[in-house]
Amino acid sequence: MWLLVLFCLLLGIFIGLEMPVFIPFLLAKYMSIAILAALDSVFGGIRAYMEDVFDTVVFISGFFVNILLAAGLAYLGDRLGVELYLAAVVAFGVRIFQNLAIIRRYLLKKW
């Protein structure tokens, strides 16, 4: 089962590497925030899956809205002269590690 997720991740990486898509250097910062948000959403989804509280609508909408909000907030911070993207990095970082810890415990309990 988890192999499918891993396979899809690798497929996405492959597509990204092969396709001639580049983002301007100026937007790379916002892209990194968006990736953090996406990572957080995916780990949150996996955790919810393990806790049997997974809701597809919540997961998918959360994924896209988080990405856009994170990038948008970082952009707004730049406009305002506040390093708002640092807040996003910290918030998502903390959540990612929390989710990872919970996933690890579930996996340890399983086996």
């Binding site: 899809c8 580049f22 989804g45 997961f59």
Partner: peptide, 30 residues
């Protein structure tokens, strides 16, 4: 239910992988 959840996670993983690759390309080029 379980299957649907798995599929959506997989689908999102594709997008995540795509974003990662693009970002990686951009940062390694610069």
């Amino acid at each position: 239910m379980k299957k649907e959840a798995m599929l959506s996670i997989a689908l999102v993983s594709v997008i995540l992988g795509f974003m990662l690759a693009v970002q990686f390309k951009t940062t390694s080029a610069n």
